[in-house]
């Protein structure tokens, strides 16, 4: 009978990796919370842009346009995450959601609409990222359970 100790070690390493991945959604949530605190303080911790760069960038888009873009984004992002959940697909796109939300904060900031719309972006960001992290947690916990079953079988074999 071949030695199954290296195989057991491999499975244990995989379990550790999957457990680490299962909490990755929470890290993104924490990152978004930190970004939101910065946005709430109107990014005061960042250096102000000088006039040359500001004029190069041009004026920000109208707040109304950003609002409609946010509605579209929110609707499609929720549908996308729910579709991933129902299909039990590998969770993807948490970082890109974080990126999109950061862009919304930036656009509102440059269009002087951040104070009015901060809570809208924060709420939808928390919703999308909470759903995403719930899916990440469920998906990787399921994988961990599968690996634990394999490990239990291997342990039985080793005892025999």
């Amino acid at each position: 009978m071949p030695d199954i100790k290296p195989l057991r070690l491999q499975v244990q390493a995989r379990i550790r990796k999957l457990e680490l991945l299962s909490s990755s959604g929470l890290w993104i949530l924490a990152l978004f919370t930190a970004l939101s605190i910065g946005a709430y303080r109107k990014f005061a911790f960042l250096p102000t842009l000088n006039d040359a760069i500001r004029s190069l960038l041009g004026s920000g888009p109208p707040v109304n346009f950003i609002n409609w873009a946010l509605v579209l984004y929110a609707f499609s992002a929720i549908i996308m995450v729910l579709t991933q959940m129902t299909g039990s697909k590998r969770p993807r796109g948490a970082l890109s959601h974080f990126g999109y939300l950061s862009v919304f904060y930036t656009f509102y900031h440059f269009s002087d609409g951040l104070t009015e719309n901060f809570w809208a972006v924060f709420t939808i960001g928390m919703t999308i990222l909470s759903l995403q992290s719930y899916h990440v947690w469920n998906y990787y916990k399921e994988k961990v359970r599968e690996e634990e079953e394999i490990l239990a079988e291997l342990n039985k074999l080793a005892e025999e």
Partner: peptide, 25 residues
């Protein structure tokens, strides 16, 4: 229930906040 609760709560609150912002403007 959890995903439905998160999705519905989040979207309703977001919709209300945005609607409030539109109406205020």
């Amino acid at each position: 229930i959890v995903p439905i609760t998160i999705a519905v709560t989040g979207f309703v609150v977001f919709g209300c906040l945005l609607l409030y912002s539109f109406i205020k403007a």
